[in-house]
Write a protein that binds this DNA or RNA. Structure first.
Lengths: 251, 251
DNA sequence: ATACTCTGTATCCGACGGACACAGTTTTGA
DNA sequence: TCAAAACTGTGTCCGTCGGATACAGAGTAT
């Protein structure tokens, strides 16, 4: 792996530069988009471990090495897949305040990650963002423009929301295959059998949680808390000092 | 990979069952703890990709196959490493309210993940938690006992905070090797060169952010927002069935 | 038509995770 | 006291995967 700075340039061209000019040799039988699509289908089914250059090639009726004419390596293929799987962000609903926009945005992001569980593993470590990824980011910042938050804070909000969407998608991916609701807590409860005195508070919480509702409540809960916190900050900003909106960094 | 249910039992014994009784054959030259320590050292240096059974064995002066007498496979080794790298949670500071406890807790968790960047990749997907992991969870729930939050909500808070710590540790790991501060945003700014009309809000935010302070502000920002949101919820709960503040969100 | 360039292919290699059989060592039971 | 049993570490082997390289055919430009 270890995407060095040398491959970085190649990856940049793959993600950002559109194919150009008249070609010379025989026409390519494949497309970057088709390759990414094939990879996504495989990874959706069997995860990133099941994603093999061999399997991708077979599903496209080509040899494994043919793929390397399009993609420098597996890491770059995954980057392309990620960009394609995210897709363009949905257009913002009109007439919705920042809170509604961020709420929508986070749930959309959650859905994308949920439909492509491998995306979680693919987004660890530093990476070069693609056009779609930046477009998603743009939506958050645009929604927060005019709220009094500084540019850095707007980016911090984006980081926070992306993290929550990813985190919860991962948690819910675990419970999908098994029991629908609180499968996660169910496993913990089993572990706590006969160990209640070692984790007393956890034991009480799990027993209490078992009687509550199931579903995606963890996503809703965290999102509501985060948005409440942001709202509190915005309130103090807009109600506070009428200082000019410039980049005030002091405090 | 694909840790099936068969290996699950073996992993459970590795994580939860203490070695017992009189052994029969020759004395083992290694220890699970020593193996985990060696693996952690390697993964800290070169990541999970650099972690090889071969390298772990070499650093312990044994053959690769000798490790398989202690650990069923690499996945289980990583699980042991994770459990050891997390360690026991630090004891809660006395005389601190729930907010201070959760603040401390999240920063401690952040530090662990920051010191072991591979832990981020090791915690994707469903897994069997070890004693230490459950002990960390216990701390959060214990801190929230008596705040009026239900058991499920307490667990949701834990999920939220863990996610934030992990997420920010990952982001800060990227900027460690390069420029200390906002290296992340710097790369984005380069990408936006000549593309400002495509991502207008993002462009403005990045220019504004460049003038602000750097450092771990993203961790502080998100943590403050999250804790603010939790505090708002707790306030409505402890205030009883009285009319809560305007944080009520439609369904 | 010819030279050039690009595509897909076949072959090969090193690294890695892991299976398996074997030899040596220590404890247990007679 | 002594052999059987059980466990440890080792050497060897295999399948798979990512990737390098050289080559033959296809299509384009001059």
């Amino acid at each position: 792996m270890e995407t060095g700075t040398a491959d970085m340039r190649r990856l940049y061209e793959l993600l950002w530069v559109t194919p150009s000019g008249p070609r010379r040799g025989p026409r390519p039988t494949l497309t970057l988009a088709a390759i990414a699509r094939a990879g996504i289908a495989i990874a959706d089914a069997d995860g990133l471990d099941g994603l093999t250059m061999q399997r991708v090639a077979e599903s496209l009726d080509v040899t494994k090495m043919a793929l390397y004419r399009y993609v420098p390596g597996k890491a770059e293929l995954v980057a392309l897949m990620l960009e394609a799987a995210m897709g363009e962000p949905p257009p913002p609903r009109a007439g919705v305040d920042w809170r509604g926009q961020l709420d929508d945005w986070t749930r959309q992001m959650f859905d994308r990650f949920r439909h492509h569980p491998w995306a979680n593993a693919a987004t660890i470590g530093p990476r070069l963002p693609g056009p779609n990824e930046l477009a998603w980011l743009e939506r958050v910042v645009a929604a927060l423009t005019g709220t009094g938050l500084t540019g850095g804070e707007q980016l911090d909000v984006a980081v926070l929301l992306i993290g929550h969407a990813r985190n919860l998608a991962q948690h819910s991916a675990a419970s999908t295959a098994e029991t629908p609701g609180r499968a996660w807590e169910a496993g913990f409860a089993t572990l706590l059998q006969g160990r209640a005195e070692r984790f007393p508070a956890l034991d009480v919480a799990l027993r209490s949680a078992a009687a509550e509702a199931a579903g995606d409540q963890a996503l809703d809960f965290g999102l509501a808390r985060i948005l409440d916190g942001i709202q509190a900050l915005i309130t103090t900003r807009t109600a506070g000092a009428r200082a000019p909106e410039g980049t005030r960094q002091g405090e």
